[in-house]
Write a protein that binds this DNA or RNA. Structure first.
Lengths: 209, 209, 209, 209
DNA sequence: AATGAATGAGTGTTCATTCAT
DNA sequence: CATGAATGAACACTCATTCAT
């Protein structure tokens, strides 16, 4: 919240940082790389964000702040539980797909480091997400449309994990499925991959052995 | 393949490298860190493997060579398709869980770099895996026990992705599920998480809307 | 002399600068440190003084301008030569003890730099001091109470040097002599250290082999 | 003691470091300055000494290690107390005069910083010195040739302080006393200044009011 | 008159790698 | 065959200063 004052240059830096972090990792990206592409002075980054670490923190906060909002709105909607789950998946896919870069950094770099602050922000986000999922599934279970023996905290790993594993192996799937342009790739995510995840979660929630 | 002559010291270096890479990332690990823990000279690594980059390549080839074998054996077994799928998942879980370190590195570092050689080795591995999955599911579809509209190349992302997303967020789930010891964590993977994935894939493959 | 127009903010900066320079040295103090403590803008210092170097010059001129005074009065007093020497020592001790900070800076930073201007001011001060000492000792020699073979220009080094060496090794003597509070330390200087110096100079001036 | 293995290059670095530290202070000297003059790589300094701070530590240990020895030898000599004091002063003068550079750094930079280790090494040196002085003076007091009311811990400040104050004001005294060449200056220290200090301390120790 | 934004030069340090032995 | 010594390049970061307003 402290970094809410984001002027154009700060945003420009954050965008470049996201791109490079996602391409080359956090450690693999130097602030010189960032400053060169963002066409700003090296010192600007320390000046604006304090340090490279705090740049990452700001990036996380900047990029994750509205996901929370969308989920909260979803919870209020008056629709069938299954449809809610599908919409949840759609939000995840869309949102994360737009921020592939930062989410990649989040998952890979964050867990192995002692980045207290950004860690906390990210943990809170995850807790919020889990609560949303729990709430939606409980509704469905109460209505008798969802089975009761699903392990709720593992739903999100399946949704996001599927997406991520696909994305992390982008070159592999691009070749396998002939997704030669960025558009084709994005389309595949928004249609086929989304459908697959929705189908999977629906089956898991509804199917009775 | 050129690095197939692995003496004790090379193996020792590889083991240490895996540990450190998985803990601190590739960029976050210096060859001095490795040499210190492996109790060998700094120059040894460049001497043995040529460069830090080629050390990673060797590590990947060294660690992925036997997964292929296990899958091929599974295909030959004469058991029900569903059981085969469950066994496949078990192999994945077990195998990857044992090699959490290297798989983490694989997913992280590999895609963002231009590592032709190790990339190729890894791609071949993935192609093999996909073929195994295709083969097993086709059998089940032929027998009429699996539905026909599943998107087979996305099965593996769901299996491995679920596992990985769980593992990448280890600290979060450790806190959430009180998996305070390494044993509890590993047990949770081998029982509950495995069950969840098997349940998910089964539902996906069997359930008809 | 050009910086004689000292408004409140300039004085505030100079006071903070003296404190920090004496504590952490000139190089060890950043203008950001100064500006933070003095609660003024970083640019103010360059704006007011031109540069960090010129800030030091201004500081020296500001602090040494009133240092002269008291010795001239002492010379006029109609008291015994030995008492005059004791009073001289007392003035030195008191005066320098009050200005420990700037004196430390003066001795340390000044000689290694090419600060023509502030150097000159300081040299003039030292010449004046020497003249006073010469005058007092000559009186004593004329009266036959002081021996004639003392090297007068080395009297001041003994007086001030003893004090300074003690002060420069403050932590050592604080521990050795249990001068744990600032009051104890200051008291020791005003009583025991002063007595020691007076005793020393008296012996030097009076004792005949 | 840990840095006892000093090869030629290490010594070369230490010599250059001493020169520069004494000329421009510790903070005012960059390791690039040192490396340039010593004609070694910048990285060598970190490589050999670990850090700039530890370079200073090594320098201190390197330069002070034999002073201790000389003092210990002095204590064993079977000569008159007064002669011992004079020899002590001579050792100080000679020794410190040879290492003006490092001693300047020691007194100026060391006390204001948190250099635990070098601080400790230096404190031990000072304690040793004090013990030597105490021992010598006690002998003289026991023999009845030294008065008993001198404040022993303040003897060293007078000896070294006089020398230092003279040296710190070198330009002033060079002009005042026409010590235009380095030889004249050094000669003055070794003869007149030394004599002055010996005379002063003798008077202090022997003279009875 | 005063300042926040911005900068280039410089800081100490670490890096993977090379080389002489 | 193996290694300690050495290196140049790069690292994140801080510095005093300047500039537009």
């Amino acid at each position: 919240m402290s970094n809410i004052e984001l002027n154009d240059k700060k945003i420009q830096i954050l965008e470049v940082a996201e791109k490079l972090f996602s391409e080359k990792g956090f450690e693999g990206t130097s602030i010189r790389d960032i400053s060169k592409i963002a066409k700003i002075n090296v010192a600007m980054i320390s000046y604006y964000f304090g340090s490279k670490d705090r740049l990452l923190e700001s990036l996380i906060i900047y990029k994750t702040s509205d996901l929370k909002l969308k989920l909260e709105n979803l919870l209020q909607e008056n629709i069938e539980p299954l449809e809610k789950v599908n919409k949840l998946i759609e939000i995840y896919i869309t949102r994360i797909n737009c921020n592939k870069g930062i989410f990649r950094v989040l998952h890979f770099e964050l867990n192995s480091k002692e980045r207290e602050k950004s860690m906390t922000a990210f943990t809170e986000l995850k807790k919020g997400n889990l609560k949303s999922v729990e709430s939606i599934i409980s509704q469905g279970q109460a209505k008798g449309v969802f089975r009761k023996d699903v392990i709720i905290p593992l739903i999100t790993p399946t949704i996001i994990g599927t997406f991520f594993h696909f994305h992390m192996n982008k070159p592999f799937f691009v070749e396998l499925l002939n997704l030669n342009t960025e558009e084709l790739y994005d389309n595949y995510i928004k249609t086929t991959l989304k459908k697959h995840i929705q189908q999977t979660i629906k089956a898991l929630l509804v199917y009775e052995n």
